[in-house]
Design a protein around this nucleic acid. Structure first.
Lengths: 231, 231
DNA sequence: TTAGGTCTTATGGTATACCATAATATTGTC
DNA sequence: GACAATATTATGGTATACCATAAGACCTAA
């Protein structure tokens, strides 16, 4: 079927999602949003009761999330929500820096006004969400910002990698975006990325992206350190 | 139990692997080694018969491999060994470049003779394997080379990412290492990485790592192009 | 009160059953 | 021989059963 027919109004709809797919989304979101906390046991029979599905579904969901790094399976403890120590968090920020820097550079070199427009739209939405104190919106739109960066230069594999890693530090991210002055500083840093992309400066875009992630990593490190001090 | 007792000689050994863990290793290896070919259907009942396990085990293994990107699950086709097109392969090489470049730089900056020694040992083994026409050895030791680079600077998360991606292009890699002159050129390029690390030159190590991956990507692209021409 | 032994329960590992639907094979008609 | 209709088989989706073992509760003796 050529491209012309792909969008035809008579096209048969994609089948509904399986129970397993729905359950996977639910559990992943419950972990990412903090409903299930790091270190918390994920007892199969409890999940069955909560989700209203069989153990087959639950086990398959757990296998998937294990592979994604969101769940850890310990031989004498059963599955738990994966913990994330400071060292791992730092490494994740570092990898993001390497890949987001690469994507920013490619965006700048592409010299496509559509990219700039899309990024500016996301950034505007981020500012708006901050103003409305909508932190879920801030996170979601920040994801959209980066997804735009990666996908508009055709890097969906790298986006997949970044996405998987970012999900693992979502709790940290939801903390860093709330720190004092981050509502101003964060968007300002992202604007520097966009400006560099706008003027086609690959090096500057790369550096701005690295700086932004490095700053977020520093804030996360301070938060984790404070958290351990208070315990 | 404090750290002193953790390494005690009376410590109880870790339990044997579950059937699922064993099956996962088998299927992953069968895919990576080419026993199951890209695009080939992975019929659950067939896998049960081949592995000698129940559908529960097989399904959980498939879920895991799906998450790793080695298996694709299509709604009207069932699970298949994931195909890899040229575009995705190129992106994987690019990501490897970004991360391996980062690791090489960190190795150089660490200025640790143990790193150089370990890398030289892997490289020697690679050369020896080439001489013995042991391609499995070449692949394995190349993995060891990079695993050393990442883990000796404490980047196990990045190594995990690179490993997952590399597994997806293993078939391509087993082809690129066999191309004419690659037995000389490959190790020579890797030696440039090691030399830069030895003299503590981060920029040079970074560049050498990027060059090496870029060259491998170019060879892979040529191979894929030739493959499509012959079809 | 503590420690050891015993009993009970919780839980993950693994297998199998059943169903719905898609795919394939077969049959009949033109 | 081609095509449509029908029957059969293959296959993934999902649930449940059963087991072994670990964890926890409880009891008893010192």
């Amino acid at each position: 079927m050529n491209a012309d027919l792909r969008e035809t109004p008579i096209r048969v709809e994609r089948p509904s999602k399986t129970l397993r797919e729905l359950a996977l989304e639910k559990v992943r979101e419950a972990i990412v949003e903090g409903y299930f906390k790091p270190g918390e046991r994920l007892v199969e029979r409890d999940l069955c009761a909560q989700l209203g599905v069989s153990r087959t579904i639950v086990r398959e969901v757990l296998r998937h999330l294990e592979s994604e790094g969101l769940v850890a399976n310990l031989h004498n403890k059963g599955p738990i929500v994966a913990l994330l120590d400071l060292n791992e968090a730092k490494q994740i920020y570092e990898i993001r820096g390497a890949l987001e820097g690469m994507a920013a550079r490619l965006c700048a070199e592409r010299r496509d006004p559509a990219i700039v427009k899309a990024l500016e739209a996301s950034l505007m939405g981020i500012r708006f969400s901050y103003a409305a104190k909508d932190m879920a919106g801030v996170l979601g739109l920040t994801n959209a910002f980066y997804q735009t960066m990666f996908t508009m230069v055709g890097r969906h594999v790298a986006w997949g990698v970044v996405n998987l890693l970012t999900v693992r530090i979502n709790h940290l991210r939801s903390m860093t975006i709330k720190t004092e002055n981050r509502d101003v500083e964060g968007p300002a840093q992202m604007e520097r990325i966009v400006e560099a992309i706008k003027r086609g400066d690959g090096d500057a875009a790369h550096k701005a992206a690295l700086d932004h992630v490095a700053r977020a990593a520093a804030i996360a490190e301070a938060l984790l350190a404070a958290q351990q001090t208070h315990e």
